[in-house]
Nucleic acid binder design. Sequence first.
DNA 1: GCCGACGGCGAGAGCGCTCTCACCGTGACC
DNA 2: GGTCACGGTGAGAGCGCTCTCGCCGTCGGC
Lengths: 342, 342
Amino acid sequence: MTETAPRPTLEAVAARAGVSRATVSRVVNGGDGVREPLVARVRQAVDELGYVPNQAARSLVTRRHDAVAVIIAEPETRVFADPFFALQLRGISKELTAQDNQLVLLLTEGRDDHARVARYLAGGHVDGALVFSLHLDDPLPGLIQGAGVPTVFGGRPGWSDGTRDVVYVDSDNRGGAREAVRLLTGLGRTRIAHISGPLDQTSAADRLDGYRQVVGDTGPHLVVESDFTPGGGERAMRELLDRCPDVDAVFAANDLTASGVLRVLREHGRRVPEDVAVVGFDDMLPVAEQTDPPLTTVRQDIEEMGRIMARLLLRRLDRRGAGEEQGGGVVLPTTLVRRASA
Amino acid sequence: MTETAPRPTLEAVAARAGVSRATVSRVVNGGDGVREPLVARVRQAVDELGYVPNQAARSLVTRRHDAVAVIIAEPETRVFADPFFALQLRGISKELTAQDNQLVLLLTEGRDDHARVARYLAGGHVDGALVFSLHLDDPLPGLIQGAGVPTVFGGRPGWSDGTRDVVYVDSDNRGGAREAVRLLTGLGRTRIAHISGPLDQTSAADRLDGYRQVVGDTGPHLVVESDFTPGGGERAMRELLDRCPDVDAVFAANDLTASGVLRVLREHGRRVPEDVAVVGFDDMLPVAEQTDPPLTTVRQDIEEMGRIMARLLLRRLDRRGAGEEQGGGVVLPTTLVRRASA
DNA sequence: GCCGACGGCGAGAGCGCTCTCACCGTGACC
DNA sequence: GGTCACGGTGAGAGCGCTCTCGCCGTCGGC
């Protein structure tokens, strides 16, 4: 096993099947234009020898790699550890493997890595890239655009101003937020607070935006910026109770935040949903179902987002050169899931 | 941008620098055996043209890919979503990029994928593999061993019976468990229960083993098998209170389980740690610090595990052929972190 | 001052594949 | 029966790189 047997080449298969290399190549790549008896002979030779094409040799001439880079920028523990990326990766992986593409994972951390990633992409090792960049001021997306590699972004990039040809996939954060807040107004709540995520992330900004679209500008005392974590949710909720003791509903930017909110409300003896109704965002199952009471929340299908990103990219790759590509976003719908907290 | 400019080749750099391809190649690969003035000229030409070596062409002749596959078997949502793999991936990624290797991520799900993965590895696209397989009866590790690709496993594989040359990295699950249980005995607890993980996973089995090494065989009424989730922890704790109402300590297989345990104890009016002391495992920060009371637990450095796996694999790759490799495991120490729950 | 050794550099083969192009045989058509 | 068209097949070039080998110039030793 240490002494690896030399892998059979096209040449070897051709010799065994009694045909030319070209014919074997044709068969291996789908068999179009080769008559049946030959196809069978070649297939048999391939099986007998255990032939597997050498991808490096193939790429050298086709300039195709059947590989896609997934770039996750700045995965601080906090962010990376939540199931979000994991689910997204699963969706991406499924779609890529379904179309025989490989997933090359690039995690970046800080400036030096940016150069490395840019170099890697420019090196033409992959056919395209799927990019997750959370923060508005991240220079990485720009670098990537610059490298000339077809790219699809996960989440609306902050600088997508409509004029640049950016392709992205996002959840309908605004719409989901509107739906959540409308539920609360529908329940007769009048002092509805929002605990947002970090506002330098578009998802957080968009949810705040959706909230405002329904309740108008409630003024600063009902909106607290937080950080998508349970601990952050606790702090924000304490502050909120301080500022506005008669708050009767909270729309939290995500489920983790909401779990912190619930904890603080319980601690303060407020009943949920009787005294304060709470709605989350994500429908992250291990969290949303385990809270006390179970969380009413806005579901987004994260794995599906991943799949769609991959599908979009692969389609772009297939059509390369044929017709100018249009930028634009795909926005996936969200659904309200009612449990007990509102 | 759609019309990608043809990338410069070695030939182009050579022409510009007024040297041969061979010399450029030497410079690009470290510059040994080339005199300084030439090195400088070549470097300059490389910069001016923005030359990046074509990895496919290089691999074709060197049979090196500078890429490693990371194979995660059966990432059910539950497992994959916990921060475990994310952290491990980060560690791996850091180490690989530090040594200029790429990370190719393969997520598998079910039988069909096994064949795919085996074919991929046999195809020689990567130099080595890092494999995470949780379950004892998983056929994948065997297939991978069979493919003849240097491999390092994450976590002790169930079938590592000492005779096969398996290399793995694991936490000291037994030792950590012993330490946890000794803390509890040291606190004078006499009815110490254990809520284990799924026993077809070596990490769970080893922790149970460590528990038994300290308290002996407590009999079945003090050991409940669970599933590493908060919900599972709740169910297990209810059962435990039922079977043995005077239990005075619980060693939970991980922090998530422990969080469920705490919830049930609170619900039943038991004080922690006064009535029942609780110890977890993992020191998963967002969980362990947020519980009420904060969790005493056994820390394992998961990111470091990833790094070490990668380092081990790369070292094996460097030494290929030179001397027969020994199998064996690297077991990383754990540390007890005391907070309030015990 | 001549010879051998040695280090620096270039020429060229070849890694395993794809793809164009030319060739050949078959069948349709007049 | 001859021509033309066309589909199936093989020959061969070439993708961009590495690496061996041999040449040449320089230097040390006697």
